[in-house]
Design a protein around this nucleic acid. Structure first.
Lengths: 197, 197
DNA sequence: CGCTGTAATGGACGTTGTTCAATTCTTCAC
DNA sequence: GTGAAGAATTGAACAACGTCCATTACAGCG
Protein backbone atom coordinates (compact mmCIF):
# COMPACT_ATOMS: atom_id res chain seq x y z
CA UNK A 1 0.00 0.00 0.00
CA UNK A 2 1.12 3.56 -0.24
CA UNK A 3 0.66 6.84 1.54
CA UNK A 4 -2.36 6.64 3.71
CA UNK A 5 -2.22 9.41 6.29
CA UNK A 6 -1.13 12.97 6.59
CA UNK A 7 1.79 12.17 8.81
CA UNK A 8 5.05 13.70 7.82
CA UNK A 9 8.12 11.60 8.39
CA UNK A 10 8.84 13.50 11.55
CA UNK A 11 5.36 13.14 12.94
CA UNK A 12 5.52 9.45 12.23
CA UNK A 13 8.88 9.16 13.98
CA UNK A 14 7.34 10.95 16.95
CA UNK A 15 4.38 8.58 16.93
CA UNK A 16 6.66 5.56 16.87
CA UNK A 17 8.89 6.82 19.65
CA UNK A 18 5.92 7.59 21.86
CA UNK A 19 4.41 4.15 21.36
CA UNK A 20 7.82 2.54 21.72
CA UNK A 21 8.48 4.34 24.96
CA UNK A 22 5.12 3.23 26.32
CA UNK A 23 5.74 -0.37 25.30
CA UNK A 24 9.23 -0.29 26.79
CA UNK A 25 7.89 1.17 30.03
CA UNK A 26 5.39 -1.67 30.32
CA UNK A 27 7.32 -4.65 29.08
CA UNK A 28 10.91 -3.78 29.90
CA UNK A 29 13.95 -4.08 27.68
CA UNK A 30 14.07 -7.88 27.53
CA UNK A 31 10.49 -8.17 26.30
CA UNK A 32 10.53 -5.11 24.08
CA UNK A 33 9.78 -5.80 20.43
CA UNK A 34 9.74 -3.59 17.37
CA UNK A 35 6.86 -5.61 15.95
CA UNK A 36 4.77 -4.83 19.00
CA UNK A 37 5.44 -1.12 18.56
CA UNK A 38 4.27 -1.34 14.96
CA UNK A 39 1.15 -3.18 16.03
CA UNK A 40 0.35 -0.49 18.58
CA UNK A 41 0.29 2.35 16.08
CA UNK A 42 -1.33 0.32 13.33
CA UNK A 43 1.64 0.43 11.01
CA UNK A 44 3.56 -2.50 9.62
CA UNK A 45 6.98 -3.56 10.78
CA UNK A 46 8.51 -2.44 7.50
CA UNK A 47 7.54 1.15 8.16
CA UNK A 48 9.52 1.23 11.39
CA UNK A 49 12.57 0.13 9.46
CA UNK A 50 12.01 2.78 6.83
CA UNK A 51 11.99 5.41 9.56
CA UNK A 52 14.69 4.19 11.94
CA UNK A 53 16.76 1.84 9.82
CA UNK A 54 17.22 -0.83 12.46
CA UNK A 55 16.29 -2.06 15.88
CA UNK A 56 19.28 -0.20 17.28
CA UNK A 57 18.16 3.03 15.69
CA UNK A 58 14.72 2.63 17.19
CA UNK A 59 16.05 1.85 20.68
CA UNK A 60 18.36 4.82 20.50
CA UNK A 61 15.45 7.10 19.68
CA UNK A 62 13.37 5.66 22.51
CA UNK A 63 16.20 5.91 25.02
CA UNK A 64 16.75 9.44 23.79
CA UNK A 65 13.18 10.20 24.74
CA UNK A 66 13.83 8.82 28.21
CA UNK A 67 16.86 11.09 28.54
CA UNK A 68 14.73 14.06 27.52
CA UNK A 69 12.13 13.25 30.15
CA UNK A 70 14.85 12.78 32.72
CA UNK A 71 16.49 16.08 31.89
CA UNK A 72 13.18 17.92 32.07
CA UNK A 73 12.25 16.45 35.39
CA UNK A 74 15.67 17.01 36.91
CA UNK A 75 15.64 20.64 35.84
CA UNK A 76 12.14 21.13 37.26
CA UNK A 77 13.09 19.63 40.59
CA UNK A 78 16.14 21.83 40.84
CA UNK A 79 14.04 24.91 40.16
CA UNK A 80 11.71 24.25 43.03
CA UNK A 81 14.41 23.02 45.38
CA UNK A 82 14.92 24.94 48.57
CA UNK A 83 18.23 24.73 50.39
CA UNK A 84 20.51 21.86 49.45
CA UNK A 85 20.14 21.54 45.69
CA UNK A 86 22.64 18.70 45.35
CA UNK A 87 20.68 16.55 47.76
CA UNK A 88 17.50 17.40 45.86
CA UNK A 89 19.17 16.37 42.61
CA UNK A 90 20.03 12.96 44.03
CA UNK A 91 16.45 12.57 45.17
CA UNK A 92 15.26 13.44 41.69
CA UNK A 93 17.68 10.88 40.23
CA UNK A 94 16.20 8.14 42.39
CA UNK A 95 12.63 9.25 41.91
CA UNK A 96 12.92 9.24 38.15
CA UNK A 97 14.54 5.81 38.08
CA UNK A 98 11.92 4.36 40.43
CA UNK A 99 9.00 5.92 38.59
CA UNK A 100 10.37 4.76 35.24
CA UNK A 101 12.07 1.50 36.17
CA UNK A 102 11.95 -0.14 32.78
CA UNK A 103 12.77 2.88 30.69
CA UNK A 104 15.59 3.91 33.00
CA UNK A 105 17.05 0.42 33.13
CA UNK A 106 16.92 0.18 29.35
CA UNK A 107 19.31 3.12 29.13
CA UNK A 108 21.97 0.77 30.44
CA UNK A 109 20.74 -2.57 29.14
CA UNK A 110 20.97 -1.42 25.58
CA UNK A 111 24.38 -1.13 23.99
CA UNK A 112 25.42 -0.47 20.43
CA UNK A 113 27.65 -3.09 18.77
CA UNK A 114 31.23 -2.79 19.99
CA UNK A 115 33.17 -0.11 18.28
CA UNK A 116 30.06 1.80 17.23
CA UNK A 117 30.14 5.24 18.83
CA UNK A 118 27.00 6.85 20.19
CA UNK A 119 25.38 9.12 17.61
CA UNK A 120 25.87 12.82 18.39
CA UNK A 121 22.19 13.49 19.05
CA UNK A 122 22.32 10.92 21.84
CA UNK A 123 25.69 11.92 23.25
CA UNK A 124 24.41 15.48 23.52
CA UNK A 125 21.46 14.41 25.62
CA UNK A 126 23.77 12.61 28.03
CA UNK A 127 26.05 15.64 28.15
CA UNK A 128 23.08 17.90 28.85
CA UNK A 129 22.08 15.95 31.94
CA UNK A 130 25.67 15.83 33.10
CA UNK A 131 25.88 19.57 32.61
CA UNK A 132 23.12 20.13 35.12
CA UNK A 133 25.00 18.06 37.67
CA UNK A 134 28.31 19.81 37.04
CA UNK A 135 26.64 23.15 37.69
CA UNK A 136 25.21 21.96 40.99
CA UNK A 137 28.49 20.47 42.12
CA UNK A 138 30.26 23.69 41.22
CA UNK A 139 27.72 25.66 43.22
CA UNK A 140 28.31 23.40 46.21
CA UNK A 141 32.05 24.05 46.18
CA UNK A 142 33.78 27.17 47.45
CA UNK A 143 34.84 29.42 44.55
CA UNK A 144 38.50 28.50 44.92
CA UNK A 145 37.71 24.84 44.35
CA UNK A 146 35.26 25.14 41.47
CA UNK A 147 37.78 23.88 38.92
CA UNK A 148 37.33 20.44 40.42
CA UNK A 149 33.62 20.40 39.64
CA UNK A 150 33.64 18.52 36.28
CA UNK A 151 35.86 15.72 37.58
CA UNK A 152 33.98 15.48 40.82
CA UNK A 153 30.56 15.62 39.14
CA UNK A 154 31.39 12.63 36.91
CA UNK A 155 32.50 10.65 39.92
CA UNK A 156 29.45 11.58 41.94
CA UNK A 157 27.20 10.67 39.04
CA UNK A 158 28.81 7.24 39.05
CA UNK A 159 28.38 7.00 42.81
CA UNK A 160 24.69 7.82 42.67
CA UNK A 161 24.20 5.59 39.66
CA UNK A 162 25.70 2.65 41.50
CA UNK A 163 23.39 3.13 44.47
CA UNK A 164 20.35 3.57 42.27
CA UNK A 165 21.24 0.58 40.13
CA UNK A 166 21.66 -1.70 43.12
CA UNK A 167 18.41 -0.39 44.56
CA UNK A 168 16.51 -1.26 41.39
CA UNK A 169 18.10 -4.56 40.47
CA UNK A 170 17.62 -6.07 43.91
CA UNK A 171 21.25 -6.27 44.97
CA UNK A 172 20.65 -3.97 47.93
CA UNK A 173 17.58 -5.90 48.99
CA UNK A 174 19.60 -9.09 48.82
CA UNK A 175 22.32 -7.59 51.00
CA UNK A 176 19.96 -6.05 53.52
CA UNK A 177 20.37 -2.39 52.64
CA UNK A 178 17.24 -0.47 53.59
CA UNK A 179 17.87 3.12 52.54
CA UNK A 180 19.94 3.38 49.35
CA UNK A 181 19.00 7.01 48.76
CA UNK A 182 20.28 8.09 52.15
CA UNK A 183 23.49 6.17 51.59
CA UNK A 184 24.05 7.85 48.23
CA UNK A 185 23.39 11.26 49.70
CA UNK A 186 25.83 10.57 52.54
CA UNK A 187 28.58 9.53 50.12
CA UNK A 188 28.07 12.65 48.02
CA UNK A 189 28.09 14.88 51.08
CA UNK A 190 31.38 13.40 52.23
CA UNK A 191 32.98 13.76 48.80
CA UNK A 192 31.89 17.37 48.46
CA UNK A 193 33.15 18.16 51.93
CA UNK A 194 36.51 16.59 51.10
CA UNK A 195 36.77 18.49 47.82
CA UNK A 196 35.93 21.76 49.54
CA UNK A 197 39.08 21.58 51.60
CA UNK B 1 19.70 -41.48 20.53
CA UNK B 2 20.33 -42.54 24.06
CA UNK B 3 23.15 -42.53 26.51
CA UNK B 4 26.33 -42.06 24.62
CA UNK B 5 29.07 -40.95 26.97
CA UNK B 6 30.21 -41.59 30.50
CA UNK B 7 29.30 -38.14 31.70
CA UNK B 8 27.34 -38.00 34.87
CA UNK B 9 24.71 -35.31 35.03
CA UNK B 10 27.02 -33.17 37.05
CA UNK B 11 29.95 -33.54 34.70
CA UNK B 12 27.69 -32.63 31.84
CA UNK B 13 26.43 -29.57 33.68
CA UNK B 14 30.02 -28.57 34.29
CA UNK B 15 30.84 -29.07 30.61
CA UNK B 16 27.91 -26.91 29.56
CA UNK B 17 28.72 -24.14 31.99
CA UNK B 18 32.34 -24.04 30.90
CA UNK B 19 31.41 -23.84 27.24
CA UNK B 20 28.67 -21.37 28.00
CA UNK B 21 31.02 -19.14 29.94
CA UNK B 22 33.49 -19.19 27.07
CA UNK B 23 30.81 -18.35 24.56
CA UNK B 24 29.48 -15.57 26.75
CA UNK B 25 32.98 -14.15 27.21
CA UNK B 26 33.46 -14.01 23.45
CA UNK B 27 30.05 -12.96 22.21
CA UNK B 28 28.62 -10.97 25.08
CA UNK B 29 25.17 -11.21 26.60
CA UNK B 30 23.24 -9.84 23.63
CA UNK B 31 24.69 -12.38 21.20
CA UNK B 32 24.74 -15.30 23.60
CA UNK B 33 22.74 -18.29 22.43
CA UNK B 34 21.95 -21.60 24.10
CA UNK B 35 22.08 -23.32 20.72
CA UNK B 36 25.62 -22.14 20.19
CA UNK B 37 26.63 -23.59 23.56
CA UNK B 38 25.12 -26.94 22.56
CA UNK B 39 26.95 -26.84 19.25
CA UNK B 40 30.25 -26.21 21.01
CA UNK B 41 30.08 -29.30 23.15
CA UNK B 42 28.53 -31.51 20.48
CA UNK B 43 25.23 -32.00 22.28
CA UNK B 44 21.80 -31.08 21.04
CA UNK B 45 19.78 -28.15 22.27
CA UNK B 46 17.37 -30.51 23.99
CA UNK B 47 20.06 -31.80 26.31
CA UNK B 48 20.76 -28.33 27.65
CA UNK B 49 17.11 -28.00 28.53
CA UNK B 50 17.12 -31.38 30.25
CA UNK B 51 20.00 -30.22 32.43
CA UNK B 52 19.11 -26.60 33.13
CA UNK B 53 15.40 -26.43 32.43
CA UNK B 54 15.43 -23.08 30.66
CA UNK B 55 17.53 -20.32 29.24
CA UNK B 56 17.29 -18.52 32.57
CA UNK B 57 18.59 -21.54 34.43
CA UNK B 58 21.52 -21.79 32.09
CA UNK B 59 22.38 -18.10 32.36
CA UNK B 60 22.16 -18.29 36.13
CA UNK B 61 24.62 -21.17 36.17
CA UNK B 62 27.00 -19.34 33.87
CA UNK B 63 26.79 -16.11 35.84
CA UNK B 64 27.35 -18.18 38.95
CA UNK B 65 30.59 -19.38 37.43
CA UNK B 66 31.59 -15.76 36.83
CA UNK B 67 30.89 -14.96 40.48
CA UNK B 68 33.05 -17.90 41.52
CA UNK B 69 35.94 -16.71 39.41
CA UNK B 70 35.51 -13.21 40.73
CA UNK B 71 35.48 -14.37 44.33
CA UNK B 72 38.59 -16.47 43.82
CA UNK B 73 40.52 -13.68 42.18
CA UNK B 74 39.47 -11.09 44.74
CA UNK B 75 40.54 -13.37 47.59
CA UNK B 76 43.89 -14.04 45.91
CA UNK B 77 44.57 -10.37 45.38
CA UNK B 78 43.77 -9.61 48.99
CA UNK B 79 46.17 -12.31 50.15
CA UNK B 80 49.11 -10.87 48.33
CA UNK B 81 48.20 -7.26 49.05
CA UNK B 82 50.68 -5.19 50.99
CA UNK B 83 49.52 -2.10 52.85
CA UNK B 84 46.14 -0.72 51.90
CA UNK B 85 43.96 -3.76 51.32
CA UNK B 86 40.81 -1.81 50.55
CA UNK B 87 42.53 0.04 47.72
CA UNK B 88 43.83 -3.27 46.43
CA UNK B 89 40.32 -4.70 46.52
CA UNK B 90 39.03 -1.85 44.36
CA UNK B 91 41.86 -2.46 41.92
CA UNK B 92 40.92 -6.12 41.80
CA UNK B 93 37.29 -5.17 41.16
CA UNK B 94 38.26 -3.08 38.16
CA UNK B 95 40.82 -5.57 36.87
CA UNK B 96 38.35 -8.42 36.92
CA UNK B 97 35.67 -6.42 35.16
CA UNK B 98 38.10 -5.19 32.51
CA UNK B 99 39.61 -8.63 31.94
CA UNK B 100 36.16 -10.21 31.74
CA UNK B 101 34.10 -7.44 30.19
CA UNK B 102 31.39 -9.56 28.70
CA UNK B 103 31.01 -12.01 31.54
CA UNK B 104 31.04 -9.24 34.13
CA UNK B 105 28.54 -7.13 32.23
CA UNK B 106 26.25 -10.12 31.83
CA UNK B 107 25.94 -10.30 35.62
CA UNK B 108 23.89 -7.11 35.40
CA UNK B 109 22.36 -7.45 31.93
CA UNK B 110 20.62 -10.63 32.90
CA UNK B 111 17.56 -10.43 35.13
CA UNK B 112 15.06 -13.03 36.17
CA UNK B 113 11.40 -12.31 35.40
CA UNK B 114 9.96 -9.80 37.83
CA UNK B 115 8.93 -11.30 41.10
CA UNK B 116 11.18 -14.31 40.70
CA UNK B 117 13.71 -14.33 43.54
CA UNK B 118 17.32 -15.30 42.96
CA UNK B 119 17.86 -18.98 43.71
CA UNK B 120 19.74 -19.54 46.99
CA UNK B 121 22.84 -20.99 45.32
CA UNK B 122 23.24 -17.72 43.43
CA UNK B 123 22.37 -15.41 46.31
CA UNK B 124 25.03 -17.15 48.37
CA UNK B 125 27.71 -16.43 45.83
CA UNK B 126 26.81 -12.75 45.85
CA UNK B 127 26.83 -12.75 49.63
CA UNK B 128 30.24 -14.43 49.68
CA UNK B 129 31.83 -11.69 47.60
CA UNK B 130 30.13 -9.06 49.72
CA UNK B 131 31.46 -10.78 52.80
CA UNK B 132 35.02 -10.27 51.67
CA UNK B 133 34.36 -6.57 51.23
CA UNK B 134 32.66 -6.21 54.59
CA UNK B 135 35.69 -7.75 56.28
CA UNK B 136 38.05 -5.33 54.58
CA UNK B 137 35.90 -2.33 55.40
CA UNK B 138 35.72 -3.46 59.01
CA UNK B 139 39.48 -3.79 59.11
CA UNK B 140 39.85 -0.28 57.77
CA UNK B 141 37.70 1.18 60.54
CA UNK B 142 38.78 1.81 64.11
CA UNK B 143 37.41 -0.87 66.46
CA UNK B 144 34.84 1.47 67.95
CA UNK B 145 33.29 2.05 64.52
CA UNK B 146 33.28 -1.50 63.20
CA UNK B 147 29.54 -1.88 63.61
CA UNK B 148 29.13 0.45 60.64
CA UNK B 149 31.04 -1.89 58.38
CA UNK B 150 28.15 -3.82 56.76
CA UNK B 151 26.18 -0.68 55.89
CA UNK B 152 29.25 1.11 54.68
CA UNK B 153 30.51 -1.86 52.69
CA UNK B 154 27.25 -2.11 50.75
CA UNK B 155 27.39 1.57 49.93
CA UNK B 156 31.04 1.40 48.88
CA UNK B 157 30.31 -1.60 46.71
CA UNK B 158 27.67 0.46 44.94
CA UNK B 159 30.10 3.35 44.62
CA UNK B 160 32.79 1.21 43.05
CA UNK B 161 30.25 -0.56 40.88
CA UNK B 162 29.02 2.73 39.49
CA UNK B 163 32.52 3.84 38.56
CA UNK B 164 33.37 0.49 37.03
CA UNK B 165 30.11 0.36 35.10
CA UNK B 166 30.59 3.81 33.63
CA UNK B 167 34.18 2.94 32.77
CA UNK B 168 33.09 -0.13 30.83
CA UNK B 169 29.98 1.15 29.12
CA UNK B 170 31.65 4.22 27.73
CA UNK B 171 29.85 6.84 29.81
CA UNK B 172 33.08 8.04 31.37
CA UNK B 173 34.82 8.18 28.02
CA UNK B 174 31.93 10.23 26.69
CA UNK B 175 32.18 12.65 29.58
CA UNK B 176 35.95 12.96 29.48
CA UNK B 177 36.86 11.04 32.62
CA UNK B 178 40.36 9.64 32.29
CA UNK B 179 40.98 7.69 35.50
CA UNK B 180 37.83 6.02 36.87
CA UNK B 181 39.79 3.72 39.16
CA UNK B 182 41.50 6.60 40.91
CA UNK B 183 38.18 8.38 41.28
CA UNK B 184 36.58 5.32 42.85
CA UNK B 185 39.47 4.88 45.23
CA UNK B 186 39.29 8.52 46.24
CA UNK B 187 35.55 8.30 46.98
CA UNK B 188 36.08 5.20 49.10
CA UNK B 189 38.96 6.79 50.98
CA UNK B 190 36.82 9.79 51.83
CA UNK B 191 33.89 7.69 52.97
CA UNK B 192 36.05 5.50 55.18
CA UNK B 193 37.71 8.55 56.68
CA UNK B 194 34.30 10.06 57.43
CA UNK B 195 33.04 6.82 59.00
CA UNK B 196 36.14 6.53 61.15
CA UNK B 197 35.25 9.75 62.97
C1' DC C 1 -4.44 11.23 -18.16
C1' DG C 2 0.14 9.39 -17.30
C1' DC C 3 4.46 9.97 -14.97
C1' DT C 4 7.35 10.15 -10.96
C1' DG C 5 8.69 9.75 -6.41
C1' DT C 6 7.48 8.82 -1.77
C1' DA C 7 4.97 6.02 1.80
C1' DA C 8 3.77 1.75 3.23
C1' DT C 9 3.27 -3.03 3.03
C1' DG C 10 3.88 -7.90 4.28
C1' DG C 11 5.88 -12.24 2.82
C1' DA C 12 10.32 -14.52 3.18
C1' DC C 13 14.52 -15.66 5.63
C1' DG C 14 17.38 -17.01 9.26
C1' DT C 15 17.69 -17.25 14.10
C1' DT C 16 16.05 -17.62 18.73
C1' DG C 17 13.89 -20.06 23.17
C1' DT C 18 10.96 -23.86 24.14
C1' DT C 19 8.62 -28.36 24.09
C1' DC C 20 8.19 -33.27 23.84
C1' DA C 21 7.28 -37.71 21.40
C1' DA C 22 10.51 -40.68 19.67
C1' DT C 23 14.78 -43.03 19.81
C1' DT C 24 18.99 -45.15 21.55
C1' DC C 25 21.78 -47.00 24.85
C1' DT C 26 22.74 -49.13 29.63
C1' DT C 27 21.59 -52.06 33.16
C1' DC C 28 19.93 -55.77 35.48
C1' DA C 29 16.80 -59.57 36.48
C1' DC C 30 15.78 -63.99 35.05
C1' DG D 1 21.23 -64.84 26.45
C1' DT D 2 17.14 -62.34 26.38
C1' DG D 3 14.07 -58.95 27.34
C1' DA D 4 12.05 -55.51 30.16
C1' DA D 5 12.89 -51.12 32.54
C1' DG D 6 14.88 -46.90 32.88
C1' DA D 7 17.72 -43.08 31.79
C1' DA D 8 19.89 -40.12 28.39
C1' DT D 9 19.66 -37.80 24.07
C1' DT D 10 17.76 -36.22 20.07
C1' DG D 11 15.80 -33.01 16.61
C1' DA D 12 11.55 -31.70 14.32
C1' DA D 13 7.98 -28.44 15.28
C1' DC D 14 6.27 -24.00 16.97
C1' DA D 15 5.83 -19.15 17.82
C1' DA D 16 8.21 -15.00 17.90
C1' DC D 17 11.98 -12.08 16.71
C1' DG D 18 15.02 -8.67 13.66
C1' DT D 19 15.87 -7.86 8.95
C1' DC D 20 15.36 -7.27 4.06
C1' DC D 21 13.19 -5.83 -0.16
C1' DA D 22 10.17 -6.43 -4.28
C1' DT D 23 5.76 -4.85 -4.64
C1' DT D 24 1.95 -1.87 -4.15
C1' DA D 25 -0.71 2.46 -3.27
C1' DC D 26 -1.05 6.98 -3.29
C1' DA D 27 -0.17 12.29 -4.07
C1' DG D 28 1.25 15.88 -6.90
C1' DC D 29 2.55 17.68 -11.25
C1' DG D 30 2.74 18.46 -16.19
Amino acid sequence: MGRRSDHTREELAELIVAAGHAHLAEAGFARFSAREVAKRIGYSIGTLYNVFGSYDGLMLAINGRTLDLWHTELAARLDEAPGDRLTAAIGAYFDFALANRHAWTALYDFRLPEGTPLPPFYAEKVAAITGLVVAEVAAALPPARRARAPDLARSLLATVHGHCFFALNGTFALLGESDPLAAAQARVREAVAAAAQ
